[in-house]
Design a protein around this nucleic acid. Structure first.
Lengths: 142, 142
DNA sequence: CAGTGATGGTTCAAATTCGAACGACAGTAC
DNA sequence: GTACTGTCGTTCGAATTTGAACCATCACTG
């Protein structure tokens, strides 16, 4: 259980660091940043709201809220889904792309400095496969 | 960076599961549960507010709030610190001890089912040392 | 012992989270 | 076509978190 305590503490501490860094460098929250990342990696730089929420791991209502914030900031736009009138597509704007390009390096720097670069090759490998399996388990069992 | 994405997703998904399980089984939030755990492990089952906040990794104001909630629920009490009149000690009550004894098994079950039990001995070992090192790095470079 | 700077905890306003309830539309059965 | 069931995204209210401002107290210094 020492593993669990360390895991928990690390994830919370890192979360705080990241939040602080993003806020300072771009006025973004971590969830907002994750939204931009997911969109930029998606085909057409757009995703359905529900899918986006699943990816970022937030509730649908939290996503609605954050997308609205990003829309106000001009980094994201909403489109109605052509194949489903209920659906809404979140689309990354040009400004969103540039914002991400500007902010990503600093963010990755933090993640590397406190986590990735401190692990040996074996530890990194073990953690990757372990986390993948846990994520899979958590996602599949509703 | 795949490691980081999996880590992030896992920690958020697990957090949700835990929150859900604790809420259902005892009406506790995860931070509240962590407070009880820390107190029960402390000498005299009592801790200074600031130390407790550091351990649980929440802001001082969040801790003040949560301790007040737990006090209303009768699981924790406040005492003024004998050696420092500014200080406040959070003390676990008898009811708090029993509550924890009642809830802990179900909580640990979730953590094991989705994380611990899915790792090989080597992975668990690697993760433990890795997380310890990361935690140490994050705490020391305040 | 007064003066000074740091520390401990609380209070406050603002932002964000969640789940439940809701209305709109899809897909299917009849 | 009409009903039925399910999914999509939003809205709503309640709870929680955070950092900044604040007061009380401590530990030193002179």
């Amino acid at each position: 259980m020492a593993a669990w305590r360390a895991f928990l503490a690390t994830s919370h501490l890192l979360e705080r660091r990241i939040e602080e860094q993003l806020k300072a460098s771009a006025g973004l929250t971590h969830p907002q940043y994750e939204i931009l990342v997911r969109l930029s990696a998606a085909p057409g730089r757009r995703l359905r709201m529900t899918e986006l929420a699943r990816g970022v791991v937030v509730s649908k209502s939290a996503l609605t809220y954050q997308v609205t914030q990003l829309e106000k900031a001009g980094l994201v736009e909403r489109e109605t889904c052509p194949s489903d009138d209920r659906g809404v597509l979140a689309v990354l704007t040009e400004a969103g792309v540039h914002c991400l390009e500007r902010v990503a390096p600093g963010h990755l720097e933090v993640v590397r400095a406190y986590l990735i670069d401190r692990l040996s090759r074996e530890e990194l490998q073990a953690m990757t496969s372990a986390m993948r399996r846990a994520e899979e388990a958590l996602r599949s069992s509703a």
